[in-house]
Design a protein around this nucleic acid. Sequence first.
DNA 1: GGCATATAGTTGTTTATGCAACTACTCAAA
DNA 2: TTTGAGTAGTTGCATAAACAACTATATGCC
Lengths: 146, 146
Amino acid sequence: MPNNQFKKGELYSFMTGKASTAIARRLQKNMKQGGIEITVEQWSVLYHLWKSDGLSQQDLCNATFRDKPSITRLVDNLEKLKLVKRVASKNDRRINQVFLTEQGRKLEEETMNVANNTLNEALESVPADKIEICKEVLQIVYDNLK
Amino acid sequence: MPNNQFKKGELYSFMTGKASTAIARRLQKNMKQGGIEITVEQWSVLYHLWKSDGLSQQDLCNATFRDKPSITRLVDNLEKLKLVKRVASKNDRRINQVFLTEQGRKLEEETMNVANNTLNEALESVPADKIEICKEVLQIVYDNLK
DNA sequence: GGCATATAGTTGTTTATGCAACTACTCAAA
DNA sequence: TTTGAGTAGTTGCATAAACAACTATATGCC
């Protein structure tokens, strides 16, 4: 017998991710109000490029938990917005490295502030130790299923 | 000063909801393997109808945290699949009540098993008290932002 | 009764997702 | 050196999301 057995649908909200949806929506709204005209999905790609510029599309798949077509199209849109550009790798011409443009780099500071403010709104009145446990559980869930 | 202040992007995975995405994907996969040909989004609508048949589309918006156009189109698709039908309310003709068909009712038991098995996979090795704390945190996050 | 306002639902547009099928390139083994 | 397997990325299709603009019905106030 498994160590956890649940009543019907007990964890519905867990499964449907209403909290993460709410955070994503609020982040989107806060970015728009701050005059930042990108989607949260585009933000999640830029986020990894800010940490490490020149990642391949496959790297971005792994980092963002999205499939290859999703990344292809997110990079398409980011290119249209002139925030990144694709550069075919010299060593392996199958690979597109994705580089930030000047404009893409400029977005970092303002969006990070918006992201952190959004998280502070979301986690207001949640004690730090419970946040840690929550992060831990979500990580295990992810690892169990990946 | 807020009681929680985070380093840049520290809670990225929290914000992008990778755990709930992983659960949703696994649920989708498990349903498909079990021969259940509906999407997790459609499941989330049916879930509330199984609990209480004849909800209005607005009720479903509130219950599923989706906006009205999303529900319109989910109900469209569920109607195409002959799992629900719309019935204009007699008291207020603006309102569509959404009723399960025989076929829609039949899906309940098998999908609930799949949903519970999926949750058990996801939460394997997570102690019950930590799950409780995690649920609690996610609920507060949701309440903070809604 | 008639008008303003609110509510329920629909439609259009853009963006994103998952899956499957496809092209292009790489590499290694016969 | 060719061939065959694997990897990186793209394209097509169906479903879903957010937002804005719309229709139709209801309600309350004059």
